[in-house]
Design a binder for these strands. Structure first.
Lengths: 139, 139
DNA sequence: AAATTAACTTGCTTTTTGCAAGTTAATTTA
DNA sequence: TAAATTAACTTGCAAAAAGCAAGTTAATTT
């Protein structure tokens, strides 16, 4: 499978890569939920189908948004991590959270978090970005 | 058709509404390309299928992201416009542009725009947001 | 040695997309 | 003013993608 580019518009190009219902949830799981393995992704609340997960992981890897590594604890596991390109999607996720928080029904935990985020978006984003980037630089 | 909510995570909920390959392109066309009618959307570079366009427009309307109005020039036309909820997606689009501009091959025009955006994101976003919101308040 | 876990793959059904052609009302043209 | 065109869809069908259940293989645990 290859990714078709529908046009050279940046928004369209971005959506060609991550504009489906699952890719950004995998990114979210790694970025914010401390998940890094196949089975951890499978167990998320949204219940991705196993073949779709396999497909998305391989697409995200091909797009250089995630990469595979040896799992530190076991050879049976694969450790999925974000690349820099993947980490740089953080601001997109942040804006989706802020939008959802304002216009969609979400969990009360999300409301609380959104409130803090709204007040200090810049700072929180920068801080998270730094932490995430640091994690990949000292591997 | 109704929208299924896969979980109460804000990112997931946002993607349930606008996380497909077409919805945000329609929003982009209204927001940044001065398009407001069915045939204008159809003519975009990405070539959406006519039945999919009809479906997305009705979903976006049901989600209160766009609304239909009489076209000022003709009764044969329908004027689609963004609601406030739709306009508030601007920051998401902006971040997608910035990410694509840095990590994907896009047009040279997009590169130039992205460069300005990167330098002055806050200001440009606020200015655009103000203009868009003004347009809907004085209808 | 047997059971379990992890990461997939396979086969099949359902849903969504894409494409071409057709419909209806409003508008423009000859 | 009749005929052609435009605008916004709808319909039918084939192809692609998603969802679901079960199966495979290698590593790990019991």
């Amino acid at each position: 499978m290859k990714i078709k580019q529908r046009s050279d518009c940046p928004i369209s190009s971005a959506l060609d890569v991550i504009g489906d219902k699952w890719s950004l949830l995998i990114v979210r799981d790694i970025m914010m939920n401390g998940k890094n393995t196949y089975n951890e992704f499978l167990k998320s609340n949204e219940k991705i189908a196993t073949n779709v997960l396999a497909d998305r992981l391989s697409m995200l890897e091909k797009s250089d948004i995630i990469s595979k590594e040896e799992h530190p604890e076991s050879k049976a596991k694969i450790y999925y991590k974000l690349t820099k390109k993947g980490i740089r999607l953080l601001p997109v996720l942040i804006e989706l959270i802020l939008w959802a928080d304002e216009y969609l029904p979400v969990s009360s935990a999300a409301i609380t978090y959104g409130y803090a985020l709204k007040k200090d978006k810049e700072k929180i984003t920068k801080q998270m970005m730094r932490t995430l980037l640091k994690r990949i630089s000292d591997k």
